[in-house]
Design a binder for these strands. Structure first.
Lengths: 353, 353
DNA sequence: TTGTAGGCGTTATCAC
DNA sequence: GTGATAACGCCTACAA
């Protein structure tokens, strides 16, 4: 049995001359503990077979030397890094900061870390993915538009991924929200409350979420035989909501009954402008609705009538689904959530028609 | 000169039998290109010396095989992962989502990626740091309270780090904001506009930022000989601002002249409650001020008088400073920014006194 | 400029 | 249960 004073045959006695001080490796621990390097390795692997005595000697030595396993080296052998790429559109972070906090915390709970990629626009994906492949992430959560080619590349690399809050075909994992159905519901309930002339504020052209919301409202209105809505352009931020309100007022001789915005931020911009610049009362003179259920939509000044996305639940579902993907690939599944009607005070809602 | 049909001596001809398909390595590329592995390696290193012919052959082969260098392996040799840990308090993300987007994009521009750690409370740091040491991050940006022991551990591990928007001693790198001075300025300008009786809404007990802001206001008021302000507790969110307003009204027979909140979110909660529940006019019946310059503070409904943090500039500075730390350790430096007075309409400001 | 050989720190395999 | 030994995929002298 090796003694505690056995020479450190594997290692130079001190600094190896590289930049910085030499790191403490499992060999160092092995030498101090008087065991083999593989014994040390096993002690740091959850379900390994080590005798109690060995385990304690190793852990004692590890503590003395302040040894911490090197994740890069481990990743090289195991092909697992415990890193998950999270790809988010910048706008998504700004309107739902909770996505970031919920996802990272859910992952942390499972021993995983999030590497964050933010896109200035949904189109920037290509460069981001290139960076992704190098870092050995175990998978990705993508809240951005992913083309067929991108999806194919993920599967070709056998890299698990799931789409978050984005429409998906049946072949991919996804945690999503049925924006289209929600938009139809909203349109119907607004109509049944007596709103007839609709104005719509669209979102950024490359946002599929905005498009679905828009399409849902338009189609439902058409089915109900209501006049074609006035559609003005927005890009999801406050200022564009304010601009949209001005444009709506300028372009229509009579105000519409309701302005349906494809997100909350724009709805708030609309309301502020209607109230402040035009002296209108919401909802007496004009109804306004949003989409998202962001924190500010609930503030007393607005109490917005909107469709709330269950972000926390979705983040939890995403983390769970991802853990499942890691454990063993089941068939692609989709978990679909429904936005929740928030019956605020900026628009009257009738029963679903 | 080796021919293109040279046998792949380093590699088994096909799948090695491990789980998943074998990855494409630089040896594969070398074989196809008919060069040595090190030649391939050099081609992927920015400033290496490779002949044009070799470079093109290698790149052609890499493209055919769809080869991408393995960051984990590279990290093992170079001791650089191009990963930066970003440690943020959850509250910071919710009130300044821009921190996340700006930091990640600035890093991306420099070829680095952010590994995000979010803390539910500033005290959770210990567990987070333990996770940090394993992943071979090149350094960390910390927007959370860091004790002396933590700082010592960073330096002991020779891991570059910088504090973001947190007070720091002279021995550590930091990008910070002078909340104390800003708070003094705000107090002085409110006083010189005639406000005499102050109420203050504090922040979470473990937030150093909130404490500095509170201290700055209190001390300046004392210096100006004004009566001691009424301090009520808040925790930085909207609801606590609303509660604070109710408490202020309940605890004072006459309303104060101004309610100084230690952040914008609470100021907005105050204003909404004052207007909606108590029918007060801000600023006619009551002035309210915030701190942060968050997006919503500029909305028409509020147009908050506040002190804006130059988050984007600070993020840029942080990324730059971090790049500097990577390049070569200069002496610890601090870059101090000053919050900018936003002369909104929720409180009158006089000249600095 | 190019190739050879050794190392980075760990896990996995297989005898013992 | 334990210890040699071979990967893992790349970088970096060093020699040619």
């Amino acid at each position: 049995m090796p003694t505690l004073t056995a020479p450190a045959i594997h290692l130079p006695p001190d600094d190896s001359g590289r930049r910085g001080t030499r790191r403490v490796t499992s060999y160092d621990v092995a030498n101090v503990a008087g065991v083999s390097q593989s014994a040390v390795s096993r002690c740091f692997k959850p379900g390994a077979s080590v005798s109690k005595a060995t385990y304690q000697r190793v852990m004692q030595a590890a503590r003395e030397l302040d040894y911490i396993p090197n994740a890069a080296a481990r990743s090289l052998c195991t092909r697992r890094s415990n890193l998950v790429a999270v790809i988010l559109w910048e706008q998504a972070i700004l309107s739902h900061p909770g996505i970031v906090t919920e996802l990272t915390q859910q992952f942390a709970r499972r021993g995983m870390r999030a590497v964050l990629f933010t896109l200035a626009s949904e189109a920037d994906i290509d460069g981001t993915l290139a960076a992704l492949w190098q870092h050995q992430v175990d998978g990705a959560i993508v809240a951005a538009r992913l083309g067929e080619a991108h999806i194919a590349e993920f599967t070709r690399r056998a890299l698990p991924f799931l789409l978050f809050n984005r429409p998906a075909g049946h072949e991919v994992n996804a945690v999503a929200c049925d924006h289209y159905a929600a938009a139809r519901t909203l349109a119907a309930r607004l109509a049944s409350a007596g709103h007839k002339r609709f104005a719509l504020v669209s979102g950024p052209a490359d946002s599929s979420v905005a498009q679905e919301r828009l399409r849902g409202v338009c189609e439902r209105l058409a089915e109900l035989g209501l006049p074609r809505p006035l559609v003005v352009a927005g890009n999801f931020d406050y200022a564009s909501g304010a601009r949209a309100m001005r444009e709506i007022r300028a372009r229509s001789e009579a105000l519409p009954d309701v302005v349906v915005c494809t997100n909350d931020m724009m709805a708030i911009g609309c309301i502020d402008t209607a109230r402040t610049e035009f002296g209108l009362s919401v909802p007496c003179d004009l109804s306004v609705t949003g989409f998202d259920g962001s924190a500010s939509s609930g503030w007393l000044s607005y109490n917005l009538t909107t469709m709330r996305l269950p972000i926390a639940e979705m983040a939890l579902a995403a983390a769970e689904m991802f853990a499942g993907l890691m454990a063993g690939g089941a068939a692609p599944q989709q978990r679909l959530f429904s936005p929740v009607v928030v019956d605020g005070t900026t628009a009257r809602l009738g029963p679903a028609a």
